[in-house]
Design a protein around this nucleic acid. Sequence first.
DNA 1: CAGTTTTTTGACAATTTAAGGCAAAAATAC
DNA 2: GTATTTTTGCCTTAAATTGTCAAAAAACTG
Lengths: 101, 101
Amino acid sequence: MKAFGEIIREQRIKRGLVLRQVAAATDIDQATISKYEKCERKPSKMQVLQFAKLYNLDQDTLIVAWLSDKVAYDLQNERLADKVLKVAEQKVKYIAKNGHK
Amino acid sequence: MKAFGEIIREQRIKRGLVLRQVAAATDIDQATISKYEKCERKPSKMQVLQFAKLYNLDQDTLIVAWLSDKVAYDLQNERLADKVLKVAEQKVKYIAKNGHK
DNA sequence: CAGTTTTTTGACAATTTAAGGCAAAAATAC
DNA sequence: GTATTTTTGCCTTAAATTGTCAAAAAACTG
């Protein structure tokens, strides 16, 4: 249960890379990458996939980390977060079944 | 497990009001209200509370309906929605416990 | 069925929100 | 203490979402 940022930082360190190098490889500003790693900016899906490729990570795993960050972020400070997630789960199931009328 | 829009439409009909009247009472454009009821626009939190007051509904209930709509909407078409919600739940719990460093 | 009221739609303007980018500051390593 | 790396702040930009108005469509009413 790691945040997207933690994951990509771990991977970068593990490979002994500095931000500058990752920036060069991905064509993303190094300050921006720093912010991703510290969870101060949220990348687009395309960028998530870029990182998955760069670090040889399973795409699904990384996307789950990234999307769940977003959801959790939207609910931060919400007393009702728990209830909201349970209801959202039902709604997602319902939509998956019956489509979106 | 109703959508926010369904709820406020039900309530309006139940009271025999037309959009024009609700628009006057809330100072929201009637086209906008129509869109809320059809889930084509998402109101702000303030407006959700306005509707709670207008229709004498429990605020929490309405907010849960509204927020869960948002979450479910973000995850529509996401094959991984289920997994995402489970992870998000853990993250929310974690944040609630340890704050947001 | 014509006339009236209500609801919906569509295009556009306005707002809001979040991200990208640069340069300076801070931290870390050498 | 210098050099490198990382972080921060600010600002611009871009994207997404909403509100608004007018016209079209739909639903009532007599």
